[in-house]
């Protein structure tokens, strides 16, 4: 029986006196993928930020012993002319992790980015390219868990597929546990082992086939939502 990479019990997160996440409990077995869905403002990013320790919370958040977290935040607001190149960012993370230049090249290869991005300013990356660069940055820390906050927001469809394929490959090859916030329900149904829906009144947790039902989703989103749940699920 696999051990859990993350166990969350009775989690409560308040921001400015408002309860954003209320009494949330779930577990993520090692090597699996959890998709976090929910309408805008339901607290998905707040949850991730609390999980990595960036926000205070009540309740219990337990990572597996020796867990190393790689966090890829939502699209960052970077100025186009910020004089930080892909190389500057990757080398900064590599030096902190005592990783070599060869490790940097390997991390780039694993996210399908060529060496040309090393000299490119980070503010000029396309959405999908930048997300893959951030995953490469995360990989330099040799993570056991990846947290991806809407990694495909603003990314075209082929880019989305490529990004999810990258994550799936990392899981298959290295047993990385993945937690992904996503609005793409059809992608979620294909890639996630479990789905956590955040909703003030109708939170739910379970395998995609059980959770991504029209009834559940219309309760979570407050409006009818259709999703095609694939038979040929590819899950970790």
């Amino acid at each position: 029986m696999p051990t859990d990479a993350l166990t969350v019990e009775h989690l409560v997160i308040r921001l400015g006196g408002t309860e954003i996440v209320r009494d949330l409990s779930f577990a993520v077995p090692q090597g699996t993928s959890l998709a976090v869905i929910g309408p805008n403002g339901s607290g998905k990013t707040v949850l991730f930020r609390a999980l990595v320790g960036a926000l205070p919370y009540e309740g219990s958040v337990r990572w597996a012993v020796g867990a190393r977290i790689g966090y890829v935040p939502q699209k960052l607001d970077l100025e186009r002319d910020l004089p930080i190149t892909g190389r500057d960012l990757l080398r900064a993370r590599a030096r902190l992790a005592r990783a070599s230049n060869a490790d940097v090249d390997r991390a780039l290869g694993r996210v399908d980015l060529g060496p040309d991005v090393l000299d490119q300013l980070v503010g000029t990356f396309s959405g999908g390219q930048f997300q893959r660069l951030l995953i490469a940055v995360a990989l330099l820390g040799n993570p056991t868990v990846l947290l991806l906050d809407e990694p495909t927001a603003g990314v075209d469809e082929p880019g989305q597929e490529r990004l999810y394929d990258t994550v799936r490959r990392l899981q298959a090859e290295e047993g990385v546990t993945a937690l992904v916030i996503s609005h793409e329900l059809s992608v979620v149904s294909r890639y996630a082992t479990n789905v956590l829906c955040l909703s003030r009144d109708h939170p739910c947790f379970g395998i995609p086939r059980k959770v991504l039902t029209p009834e559940n989703l219309s309760q979570v989103y407050g409006t009818p939502v259709g999703v095609f749940v694939h038979d040929d699920d590819i899950r970790a």
Binding site: A54, Y71, V122, V137
Partner: peptide
Amino acid sequence: ISPDIALT
């Protein structure tokens, strides 16, 4: 680049 990335 991101205080949250720095934290992790």
